[in-house]
Simulated scan of single mutants.
Amino acid sequence: MAIRKLVKDIHSVGVIDWDRHLFDELIPLPGGTSYNAYFIEGKEINVLIDTVEEHYGEKLLDNLAELNVERIDYVISNHSEQDHSGAIPAVLDSYPEATVLTTKKGKDMLEKLLHLDDDRVEVVADGDTLSLGDRTLRFIETPWVHWPETMSTYLVEDEILFSCDFFGSHFATSDLFVEDKDEVYKAAKRYYAQIMMPFRKIITKNLDKVEELELDMIAPSHGPVYQEPDFIFDAYRDWVDGPVKPEVVVPYISMHGSTGELVDYFVDSLMEKGIKVTPFNLRDVELGQLAMALVDAAVVVVGSPTVLTAAHPNVSYAVSLANALNPKVEYASIIGSEGWGGKMVDDIVGSLGKLDLELFDPVISKGKGLEDDFAEVDRLVAEIEKAIG
Rank of each mutant, 00 (worst) to 15 (best):
I3Q: 01
R4W: 00
V7H: 03
D9R: 06
I10S: 00
L22E: 14
L26D: 12
T33M: 10
S34F: 06
E41G: 12
G42E: 05
V47S: 03
L48Q: 05
I49E: 00
E54K: 15
D62H: 12
N63Y: 03
L64G: 01
L67E: 07
N68T: 10
D73E: 08
Y74G: 03
S77R: 01
H79V: 11
S80G: 13
A87V: 09
A87W: 04
D93L: 12
E97G: 11
T103N: 06
K104Y: 14
D108R: 15
D108E: 15
E111A: 09
L116V: 11
D134N: 15
T136Q: 06
H146Q: 11
T150G: 10
M151T: 03
S152M: 04
E157C: 10
F167V: 02
T173W: 07
V178H: 01
E179Q: 15
V184N: 03
A187L: 05
M197C: 07
R200P: 05
I202N: 01
I203C: 04
T204M: 11
K205Y: 15
I218T: 07
P224T: 08
E228V: 13
F231T: 05
F233T: 11
D234Q: 14
V240M: 07
P243I: 13
K245G: 00
V249N: 05
H256K: 14
H256A: 13
G257A: 06
S258N: 15
S258G: 07
Y265I: 08
Y265T: 07
K273G: 00
K273V: 00
G274P: 04
V277W: 03
G288C: 08
M292H: 00
V300A: 11
V300D: 02
V307M: 08
T309Q: 15
V319R: 04
V319M: 06
S320H: 09
N326T: 10
K328R: 13
A332C: 08
S333Q: 02
S337E: 09
E338H: 15
E338V: 10
L352A: 04
D356C: 07
L357E: 02
I364L: 09
E371N: 15
F374H: 07
E376Q: 13
V377K: 06
R379M: 09
L380C: 06
E385L: 11
G389C: 09
